[in-house]
Design a protein around this nucleic acid. Structure first.
Length: 518
RNA sequence: GGCGCUAUCGAAUAAGGGUUUAGUUCGCGGCCCUCUCAAGGCUGAAAUCCGGGUUCGAAUCCCGGUAGCGCUACCA
């Protein structure tokens, strides 16, 4: 029987989740949901040195904002499940709470001869590295050098026993076999082969915090949690041979997960991967949510910048994947239906902020007006409380074509809620001259007689009036806009008049005439 | 330096040996619409990294070079 598909997203709480991390989580989620399987969130906090308070909560909140809810690892409130239960037999999901289970696996490897205790101090190794560097070489702890270093392979048995019994001062390293071709398969990249001689004896158990390294904890947890596919970033590809060898050493090959390595997200310009700095420099968010670090440094977030989570997710899905059709707008559920690892692109994806804005604009346009109104009211508070839903809806409907983000509504629609306090001097100079001061009062009186005051009828009537009198269409219309908006840019004059209503329009025109006369 | 991955318009990508004068979207330019700004319609410029090979035929398969990226920690 085919195993139930189970994938995991396993971030390290060393800071806010980067949008590249969100993409990895998204692809894992899409894969799991399409297969009717489980998406697991596991917190890999085995790096006690780099742990950042709040990072875990940030990760969970970011995923929730995106609509990505783990089947395991987090409860309904967004907390990491800490104890095993019928529903979560694989708990806990935080590696720091699983520390008790890794030691025996590390020791098992030593007993079987696949790993060994190493007693070299960090200082000794650093010295070796700098010495090698001076000769333009790289020091590697491997089959060539381990015979002359301090470890359980070289030291007498009784001394090894004594040192290990002391409980501190040792690490466990994996003994990479000599001259073996490690043959691997990647769901995205295909077949890969590497000679084991190019690998080094990676530390599996750390002395400093008495915790397993990523490599050990990861393999053990993936095995214990019955993970079927590992979808992770490209930065892990170089350690894939080690992971294969680890599964082999444990004898877990039959249930070994399949691997898929995702390419990195690259910065919009220049070279290298997308970093926090690029966002600051080019003016776009790199993180899903706003983040303030310990130094008080603020990193903007997509959420706070006015992106809809649906647009953010849609944009992210298309960074390194495409459905093979020309459809670009997909909801999360639609993505679940069409996503395949086969269509994930192998090369790095350069992030394009313009395209991200475009996606948001598309979602803004599709959004039901009622939602727009409710959200606008929530954001504006008392300033717009006196206006009806119908009025606000009309305003937003008219303005949504001209903005990319709902956050832009505040400035873009202000004149609908407040009478212009001043008129753009450049526009005044351009339009308020020649016959215009004489014409506008006539137009004003004409408008006062228009009935019904609908967009179509108002537009047609005013245009006819101007044509019949052979007045300059542009100047008259722009002057009306100037009185309505305060500026010479904005929506169609008839559109605005219909929304504002006759009384308000006349008030504004009268005010304009009175102001400019003096 | 070593090892690995990757390589199509400015960006994201399509084309799975012939359907290709290499398509689409974003961006950029032009035109139309027009009372301004948008939006929309039409349209233009713009790419297969280089060199070999395989083949009747290569963007596509193979080899080499180059470039970019990643890894090369008791970080993940």
């Amino acid at each position: 029987m085919e195993r139930r598909r189970r994938v995991r997203f396993a971030p390290s709480p060393t800071g806010p989740l980067h949008m590249g991390g969100v993409r990895t989580a998204l692809y894992n989620y899409l894969y799991a949901k399409q297969a009717g399987g489980d998406f697991i969130l596991r917190i890999e906090d085995t790096d006690s040195q780099r742990f950042v308070p709040g990072a875990e909560a940030y990760i969970i909140e970011a995923l929730r904002w995106c609509g990505i809810y783990p089947d395991e690892g987090v409860d309904a409130a967004g907390n990491v499940v800490e104890t095993a239960s019928a529903r979560h037999p694989h708990a806990p999901y935080r590696q720091s709470q699983r520390r008790g289970i890794y030691r025996k696996y590390a020791e098992e490897l030593v007993e079987k001869g696949f790993a060994y205790y190493a007693f070299d101090t960090a200082e000794e190794l650093t010295a070796l590295r700098t010495a090698a560097e001076a000769e333009k070489k790289t020091f590697t702890y491997n089959w060539e050098t381990r015979g002359s270093l301090k470890n359980s392979l070289t030291l007498p048995a009784d001394e090894v026993a004594r040192r290990v019994a002391e409980e501190t001062g040792w690490t466990i390293r994996f003994k990479i076999p000599e001259n073996r071709t490690v043959a691997m398969d990647d769901l995205i990249r295909g077949h890969i082969e590497v000679n084991s001689n190019t690998l080094d004896d990676k530390v599996l158990w750390k002395r400093v915090d008495e915790l397993p390294t990523y490599h050990l904890a990861n393999i053990v947890d993936d095995h214990l949690m019955e993970i079927t596919e590992v979808i992770r970033g490209e930065e892990w590809l170089p350690s894939l041979p080690l992971h294969y060898l680890l599964y082999e050493a444990f004898g877990w090959q039959d249930t070994q997960p399949r691997f898929a390595h995702l390419s990195l997200l690259l910065k919009p310009d220049g070279k290298g991967k997308l970093s926090k700095r690029d966002g600051d420099r080019l003016g776009f968010p790199v993180f899903p949510l706003r983040w303030v670090n310990a130094e008080g440094e603020v990193s903007r977030g997509y959420r706070e910048d006015g992106y809809y989570p649906e647009a953010f997710v849609n944009m992210l899905a298309f960074l390194g994947w495409n459905p093979g059709t020309e459809q670009e707008i997909f909801t999360l559920d639609e993505l679940v239906k069409v996503f395949t690892l086969e269509r994930v692109v192998k090369s790095g994806a350069r992030f394009n902020p313009d395209k991200a804005k475009w996606f948001n604009q598309e979602y803004l346009r599709m959004r039901p007006v009622e939602k727009l109104v409710a959200e606008f009211r929530a954001a504006e508070g008392p300033r717009v409380a006196a206006f009806s839903d119908e009025y606000i809806g009309g305003v937003l409907e008219l303005m949504r074509e001209r903005v990319h983000f709902p956050t832009e509504f505040h400035d873009a629609t202000s004149f609908f809620f407040e009478v212009p306090a001043e008129y753009d001097p450049a526009a005044v100079a351009k339009f308020w001259k020649d016959d215009i001061p004489a014409i506008i009062p006539q137009v004003r009186d004409f408008i006062a007689g228009i009935e019904p005051f609908t967009k179509e009828h108002v537009g047609e009537s005013v245009e006819n009036l101007i044509r019949e009198n052979a007045w300059p269409m542009g100047k008259v219309m722009n002057t009306l806009r100037l009185f309505l908006v305060g500026k010479s840019v904005g929506p169609g004059v008839a559109d605005m008049m219909a929304i504002m209503g006759k009384d308000e329009v006349l008030r504004r025109i009268d005010k304009g005439i009175a102001t400019l006369k003096s």
